[in-house]
Design a protein around this nucleic acid. Structure first.
Lengths: 136, 136
DNA sequence: ATATAGGTCTTGAATCATTCTAAACAATAA
DNA sequence: TTATTGTTTAGAATGATTCAAGACCTATAT
């Protein structure tokens, strides 16, 4: 489900294009969340950074993730089964499946999950669907 | 949307029937959340208690709400737009609409919101739908 | 090159929701 | 009445996240 990893220079261009100054920390985090990670939490980003970057503070992890979300490169999800946020590089419309056997979250294509409403007098802006279940 | 309020004695029976010892605090909280409140947070239950019960600690509010959830009388929701949990006396299957104009959450009848999936190899246990929008 | 200005990063404190702990307090059963 | 068990309480502890202040860069203009 993950595209092959982008070079730092490509990440840099993406950050610039989105109006985010490409610092070393931001490039490292962006590369990890956009290319390597799967629905990581801030804590997981920090662990990765501790192992792969000379020195990074937790505040920088949060600042950077927030900056990437604000720039539209990342989406922040608050899943009901976790008390920490997760970050998703899939910014197209999609839903989520929690496999309760493994605790892993999978993206669901809107083609596979349709929501139809009969609501009147409601202007719908966004629909979140979160399915709990288990995969065979 | 709220049924007319139940007498304390009726609440007491309901608690007993659900296997929850009916203490004064539990009856008071249960009556408030089952009859009066609308998707309250623990903080709102505490505020109500401060105004309507001689003395109640925050721990008791949380303990009681958890007990009611465990007993199946209440459902706990973690909505993505709030960082605190809300409690819902509607324990039948239903979905939620956040009116972004007012911040209020409305219950949606499953008859008005249908979710159909084409997922294969997935045993679905529960589906959460959370719609953001605004009401006319 | 140099200075300046404006971001950026770090540490550590602060905040907020929630749970834990230990002690005080019923209520009940023997 | 005493023992047992469950409940409530105040306050400490936890965990996620944000805030604050100063140190540190880096881009640009001179």
């Amino acid at each position: 489900m993950k595209q092959s990893c982008l070079a730092p220079s490509e990440i840099e261009s993406r950050l610039k294009a989105a109006g985010v100054q490409p610092t070393a920390q931001r490039i490292a985090i962006a590369r990890y969340v956009l290319c390597e990670a799967d629905h990581p939490t801030a804590e997981q980003v920090k662990s990765w950074a501790d192992a792969n970057f000379p020195k990074m503070s937790m505040a920088t992890v949060y600042n950077t993730l927030n900056a990437l979300v604000d720039a539209g490169l990342l989406k922040k999800h608050a899943f009901p089964h976790l008390n920490e946020a997760t970050y998703d590089d899939n910014i197209t419309e999609h839903y989520h499946l929690l496999d309760e056997k493994t605790g892993r979250v999978f993206d669901l294509d809107p083609a596979d999950v349709k929501v139809t409403t009969k609501l009147k007098g409601v202007r719908i802006k966004e629909v979140d669907v979160f399915i709990r279940g288990s995969r065979a």
